[in-house]
Computed example of a mutant assay.
Amino acid sequence: MAEVSLAIGGRSYVITCRDGDEARLQHLASLIDAKTQDARRAVPGLTEVRQLLFAALFLADELNDIRTGAIPAAPPAPDPRLADALESLADRMESLVSRLAAVPENA
């Protein structure tokens, strides 16, 4: 088991998770933290518990909108391997074009 430190609402929380889940949990914590900041800006003076409550409500509202189709889900993030494969393919095509350009027309 791994431990990960999550920063939410100006506090740090250390939790135990499965090995390899650390980055995902940190990403999720950053989403929650952003919503606590939204709550703090919208209603100054909220206690920490109320900030977390509003963050949960904001996230639940977004999830509900996505599930009911009120707003479309964000498209999946592009796979970096695809960009590498396209780059490699472009290099190969440029190489073929260069080789073909070097061949005399009568050949």
Score class of each variant (00 low, 15 high):
F54D: 00
N64A: 09
S98E: 14
E94R: 05
I71C: 14
P75F: 05
L57G: 12
R99S: 11
V97F: 09
R81S: 15
L46H: 02
A42S: 08
N64E: 12
D61V: 02
I71R: 06
G45N: 01
D79I: 13
P72L: 14
V97W: 03
T68D: 14
A55H: 01
Q37D: 04
G69R: 04
R41Y: 07
L53P: 01
S88H: 12
L86G: 02
A73R: 06
D65E: 06
E94C: 06
P78E: 11
V97L: 07
A55D: 01
L89F: 04
S98W: 03
D65S: 12
P76H: 05
A60D: 10
A70M: 14
R81M: 13
A56N: 04
S98V: 09
P78T: 11
D38C: 07
E94Y: 03
A77F: 11
F58L: 12
R67T: 09
E87C: 11
L59Q: 06
D91R: 08
A42P: 01
G69N: 04
R81F: 12
E62F: 07
A60T: 13
L53T: 03
P78S: 09
A55C: 06
D84H: 06
T47E: 10
E94P: 01
P44K: 00
A77M: 08
S88V: 05
S95M: 12
V49T: 04
I71Y: 08
G45E: 00
E48M: 02
P80W: 15
R50V: 03
E94A: 12
D79S: 11
D61Q: 12
V49W: 01
D79M: 08
L86N: 03
P76T: 13
A77D: 05
L82A: 15
R40K: 07
A77N: 08
G45T: 00
V49M: 03
E62D: 14
A77Y: 08
A85T: 09
E87K: 09
A56R: 02
A39T: 00
L46M: 05
E87I: 14
T47P: 02
E48H: 07
A74T: 08
L96Y: 06
V49N: 02
L53C: 07
R40G: 01
A90I: 04
R41M: 10
F54C: 06
L57P: 01
V49G: 00
A74N: 04
I66V: 10
A60G: 12
A70K: 05
D91S: 15
S98N: 15
G69C: 11
L52C: 13
A74G: 05
L63S: 13
R41G: 03
R50M: 15
R41C: 08
A77T: 13
R99F: 08
R92W: 03
L53N: 00
D38E: 11
G45M: 00
L89R: 07
A42E: 10
